[in-house]
């Protein structure tokens, strides 16, 4: 168990080393959420059509668009696993004494590292364009931890999908086809109450909504009444995905 934990840390270290050598992806991926915050936010906000509970619309969507980006990064992370299957890396990792689940969980959590750095690029920019955050360092830290763990869950989801896809091209399509619906059927851009009831039902099973709700509470509104539910939902999501991805890893290599 201790060994497995150590292996997960090595995977995270590996990711940080890769990130250190090539940071362009983090910068270029920050462009999209910035556009949401600087263009879409003010324009939609000026229409005053969306009830945000008293916060400016741009502030309201900041956690959502940021998490959309980190989620997309995590989902694409499964692609790395497909690539590593094409190359021999995954095969070699599986022939080491490291338990298989530690490879899956470790690689997944490694994507959380990317997500945190991504958030750390986006947040100062949001601050600079006038988004007001809850001035509480503990909340801020907790928000980063939520993003870190949730990204791990999404990365495990993508490893699970990758184990069925097996080619990069197919996976790319699926990656898009999953993140966008998750994004639109969540509370990232509008409160759940505005959605048609069918969508609201779906949203109750959408992990992204819980992540956005938690981070929005911690960073923007300071309202933590549903934080516990959010954290439980994220934990269930993560454990389910870690388990499924570990089991299906066999499919990737065969």
């Amino acid at each position: 168990m201790l060994k497995a934990l150590k292996n997960m840390l090595v995977m995270i270290e590996l990711e940080m080393r890769r990130l250190w050598h090539d940071r362009t992806e983090i910068y270029s991926r920050a462009i999209q959420p910035i556009l949401w915050m600087t263009i879409y936010g003010p324009v939609m906000g000026s229409a005053r059509a969306i009830p945000t509970g008293g916060v400016p619309y741009t502030d309201f969507i900041t956690p959502g668009v940021m998490i959309q980006t980190t989620t997309f990064v995590s989902i694409l992370y499964g692609l790395t696993m497909v690539w590593e299957r094409d190359s021999g890396i995954l095969k070699k990792l599986l022939v080491t004494p490291a338990p298989r689940y530690s490879v899956v969980v470790g690689r997944s959590m490694a994507s959380g590292v990317r997500a945190i750095f991504q958030a750390l690029i986006i947040l100062p920019i949001a601050f600079a364009i006038g988004v007001r955050f809850v001035p509480n360092p503990t909340y801020f830290l907790l928000a980063l931890i939520v993003i870190f763990f949730a990204s791990g869950g999404f990365a495990a989801t993508s490893i699970l999908i990758a184990s069925f896809m097996k080619t990069r091209e197919r996976f790319m399509g699926i990656g898009q086809a999953i993140t966008m619906p998750l994004f639109f059927a969540s509370n990232a851009l509008y409160p759940l109450q505005m959605m048609p009831s069918i969508l609201r039902e779906f949203s109750a099973y959408n992990p992204l909504s819980y992540v956005v709700d938690a981070v929005r509470g911690l960073l923007i509104t300071g309202n933590l009444s549903s934080l516990l539910i959010d954290l439980v939902a994220i934990a269930i999501f993560n454990i389910t995905m870690f388990t499924l991805a570990s089991v299906s890893l066999r499919r990737i290599i065969e």
Binding site: K6, V10, R17, D86, K91, K92, V95, P97
Partner: peptide
């Protein structure tokens, strides 16, 4: 798995880190 080393036919090192870092990561995994 504790007794063997294996080199697959396909390339099996990370290309976006240095040679030393590859060895370091494996040393830690082992």
């Amino acid at each position: 798995r504790e007794l063997i080393s294996y080199i697959p036919q396909e390339m099996s090192v990370w290309t976006d880190i240095s040679g030393y870092e590859n060895l370091l990561v494996y040393a830690k995994i082992f």
